[in-house]
């Protein structure tokens, strides 16, 4: 019974995430609303809708019945492969701010059904070779513009979307682990044994943007929380950071938002004013994750 309840819950959660409800109207046509639009209205209020024969009609909000849109792997696959048109996602990590709180790692592992030793994002303790200074460095997937992992995949299970995100499709992965061998950032992990809580996730439809449920014998990796970006939300790690380490945004629009302060700044200026760098730039992988050096003089990154 508890299991049954669980199943239902996860399904409902899933529908919620989609943020879509429908309406069964008198003409038997369904109308889809953004959930938010609907929630803002009070019962008794009227709402204008466009019918299929292009007439505007007013209906009472209380008459609208949410219709569950069927969520299936095919639909999730299609949108997961397509990506978010016109975007190019980037992350900026301010190393001066990281205090090794590890909230990012925990948020990521819990939502992606990962075991303690599996990391989509890993906070590393680094030591400067020249002066011996140590600092903490969160390391997600770099979502490279020249992704080695994508080049070597024999079946196209791992791919780069037009919005810059590199995903892994565990419905296709053959488990050869060439991508793990090819990634210079050690960003990928493998499901050597049954995934954590495999039983619990058994009936959840596979979402390539979340890479859940995880599957035995397949590779898993950071997805820049593509499922959250679809909802206009910041990635799990970014949103859970208490120390203002992460900025996330769209390079095409040239802005990034800090996950803690929610302050939005110009990306190009942030990078330029703070001597941002990328990891192992000499390898030519062109990462989309930028680092602000740990030992800057000023406490706040300069944005003016």
């Amino acid at each position: 019974m508890a299991k049954e309840q669980n199943k239902k819950n996860s399904r409902r959660d899933f529908i919620k995430k989609l943020g879509i409800v429908g309406l069964g109207s008198a003409s038997m046509a369904s109308i889809y609303f953004d959930k938010k639009t609907l929630e803002e209205k009070k019962p008794g209020e009227k709402i204008k809708v466009l019918t299929t024969d292009k007439k505007v009609v007013e209906v009472n909000v209380s008459d609208i019945i949410p219709v569950e849109e069927e969520v299936n792997t095919d639909k999730l696959q299609h949108r997961g492969r397509t990506g978010l048109v016109g975007k190019k996602f980037v992350m900026v990590i301010d190393l001066a701010k990281c205090k090794n709180a590890r909230k990012c790692m925990h948020a990521c592992q819990s939502v992606h059904q990962l075991k303690p030793e599996q990391h989509h994002i890993n906070v590393l303790q680094m030591e400067d070779e020249v002066n011996g200074a140590t600092y903490f460095m969160p390391k997600p997937c770099m979502h490279c513009d020249e992704p080695q992992c994508v080049s070597v995949c024999p079946v196209g299970a791992t791919f780069k979307r037009q919005d810059g995100i590199v995903l892994i499709d565990n419905e296709m992965c053959v488990g050869c682990r060439f991508c793990i061998a090819a990634c210079p950032y050690s960003a990928r992990s493998f499901n050597w044994t049954d995934p954590r809580d495999a039983e619990k996730y058994k009936d959840v439809p596979y979402d390539v943007e979340l890479n859940v449920p995880q599957k035995l014998g397949t590779v898993t990796k950071c997805a820049f929380s593509a499922d959250r970006l679809r909802e206009n939300k910041l990635p799990y790690c970014v949103a859970s950071c208490p120390n203002g380490v992460y900025y996330f945004g769209d390079a095409n629009q040239d802005f990034v938002t800090n996950g803690t302060t929610r302050k939005t700044v110009r990306l190009s200026k942030l990078l330029k004013d703070n001597s941002a760098y990328t990891l192992l730039a000499e390898l030519g992988t062109k990462p989309n994750v930028f680092y602000l050096p740990p030992n800057r003089k000023c406490e706040e990154p300069q944005t003016t």
Partner: peptide, 25 residues
């Protein structure tokens, strides 16, 4: 060595010529 030997045929069906594994096979 394959994590998913059940998907062996995928390499022939969806094989990407860009991948050295496909050249090797």
């Amino acid at each position: 060595d394959m994590g998913r030997p059940d998907r062996l045929l995928s390499i022939f069906v969806y094989g990407r010529v860009q991948s050295p594994i496909v050249w090797d096979i």
